[in-house]
Nucleic acid binder design. Structure first.
Lengths: 336, 336
DNA sequence: TTGTAAGCGTTATCAT
DNA sequence: ATGATAACGCTTACAA
């Protein structure tokens, strides 16, 4: 059996309250006794039982993190930030993987509440209404990553998707591209998705380029999916000179398809990604993409949670982190 | 304040023990009362407090998972398996990221013990002696992934690294390669690393090919590192016709270097990876590699833990999962 | 079948 | 400055 505060108290010849006090520095203890207790603790290798502590303090030192796919490049790096900063504040991470299913999300939200987590970082592909409803009545601090909703006052952290998309489209236009496809997310209900489309549209409009709706396709973030989309461009003979995919993975799918069909990237077609995940730099041709500060997104999110836990006023509900256009080898001037 | 077992008992007009019994089905309860209690539970939305439960049962329903890098392709997929099977058995995952640092590993091991986790899945780059020492005296069930040690009787799950390496080398030899470089792990103290080297060596020896030690290099799993190693091969003018890298990432680093220096893969040099992570299939040229059942490795590991928790005899201490040689486009016949 | 009460390992309130 | 003791929410002998 492991040693408890009682054992320590007995061996030190003091009461358990005194032991508790030296552990937590919660009240003054005479130096003599403190030393004695400290020594016993050292000898016995006593460590306070966090479960008992949680029970009385009603604090678990646990933060739940709900993600749609642990193994995603994108999410892995965000998790790094969450984990590291969390641990810095003595919070542990309870990890939940949902595969994006609403049912799982709801289940885990309940489970985490049961586990007394003090806060929840929520990532999801699609922020569905049912989820929002549940979020509205949960009493635990929640922070959203890369998603937000006007229906509810939940803090979120992301980049400026509108501006990023606008920047990227403009970059392409500046390089002479006029026929620019957009492989956008199919999560139409999400604001971020609309933002990306708006950015794209605005850039085209400002440059007097009409939008060809056939070139605006909905992708599901899967490589195979964008592969098919591009294949279809080829089949329909509407292959543009540039393809703006809203994820690196989809960009790679697009390039693979182009390569497989004998096209050269970027000589024949320029392709861009989004996120700047690891593959963006090691894939060949390396991807022109939008860098998102993934680690920081995670770090900021959990900081917000911790602030809320400690009832520190969170100034900005919606944190926008800076993005950056990274130009690599997958884009070039439009072919003549 | 959230509703407790007391509230339910009072509202139902029964004792808390009765409520506890219907929740846990631990002892017979008359149907009439059971219904009543169930109804109150439903009405009030009561859920048992797992912290209180943990305290008395000395069970936390938590399994600690220690990994060196959450964002690694390799580990992400293993985590999927761990998470999914764990949740299936109502266990939650407490995630700890160590960056491979021994100090962090030790710290987290202690922390997890304090948190009363019921089992620990441990992944590490290098299984250092200090860690083994600590593992020896921890009373919590531990399972190792892709590592094992003769110094201690800890269960582990992995593939047969010797055989896999042997298979791969043989495959290369069969395609006419005689000068085959090995970019092996620099974690020399690990058995798996030795195994890989032994497999490579045996295949060469069996085919009467002498080992050129200059072609056996230690890589640190980083892309940049294998890039440099290959760059050095070129500089020293000892570029082999095949490079067997013991991770996909290192294989990609090698290929990138080759490509950057005007070599063709696989026409000039064949390159193989190890693991079959996602990039292996989308990178171009797609990688010939060793498929490891990553999800299953995680799944089996956590099943072993759960068995140990429940004191079910674990038959085989060392589980070897099947591997598979996946032939893609990064390898071909040796140039004439 | 049901209720009473002890106990899990802490913190916190109140005396002393 | 220190010590009893109640309380946190639950499970589980033991009694009835």
């Amino acid at each position: 059996m492991s040693v408890t505060i009682k054992d320590v108290a007995k061996k030190a010849g003091v009461s358990i309250s005194t032991v508790s006090r030296v552990i937590n520095n919660s009240k003054p203890v005479s130096n003599e006794i403190r030393q004695k207790v400290l020594q016993i603790i050292e000898e016995t290798g006593y460590t306070p039982n966090p479960v008992a502590r949680s029970l009385v303090m009603k604090k678990s030192q646990l933060i739940g993190v709900i993600v749609p796919d642990i193994s995603s490049f994108f999410i892995g790096e965000i998790l790094n930030g969450i984990e590291e900063i969390g641990k810095m504040y003595a919070y542990d991470i309870l990890l939940c993987n949902t595969y994006g299913s609403l049912e799982q999300e709801l289940r885990y939200l309940k489970l985490l509440k049961g586990k007394q987590v003090e806060g929840i970082v929520l990532m999801t592909w699609e922020l569905q209404d049912k989820l929002i409803e549940y979020l509205a009545e949960i009493e635990i601090p929640v922070v959203l990553i890369n998603r937000n909703t006007s229906k509810l006052d939940i803090p979120s952290v992301s980049i400026d998707n509108f501006q990023a998309s606008y920047d990227m489209t403009n970059y392409l236009i500046k390089h002479g591209h006029k026929r620019i496809a957009l492989i956008r997310s199919n999560l139409d209900s999400n604001a971020f998705c609309q933002d990306q489309y708006r950015g794209y549209k605005k850039a085209l409009e400002e440059n007097g380029i009409p939008i060809d709706e056939r070139l605006v396709q909905f992708g599901n973030f899967k490589l195979e999916n964008s592969y098919e989309i591009v294949k279809n461009f080829i089949k329909e003979d509407i292959l543009p000179t540039a393809i703006f995919a809203t994820s690196d993975t989809m960009a790679i799918g697009a390039i693979n398809c182009l390569l497989d069909h004998g096209y050269k990237v970027p000589e024949d077609v320029s392709v861009t990604g989004f996120h700047d995940t690891k593959p963006a730099s090691f894939y060949r041709p390396s991807l022109t993409t939008i860098r998102q500060p993934l680690y920081d997104i995670g770090a900021v999110a959990i900081r917000m949670i911790i602030k809320k836990i400690n009832h520190i006023e969170v100034h900005e509900k919606i944190v926008i982190l800076p993005h950056e256009l990274i130009v690599r080898k997958s884009t070039g001037p439009a072919p003549a």
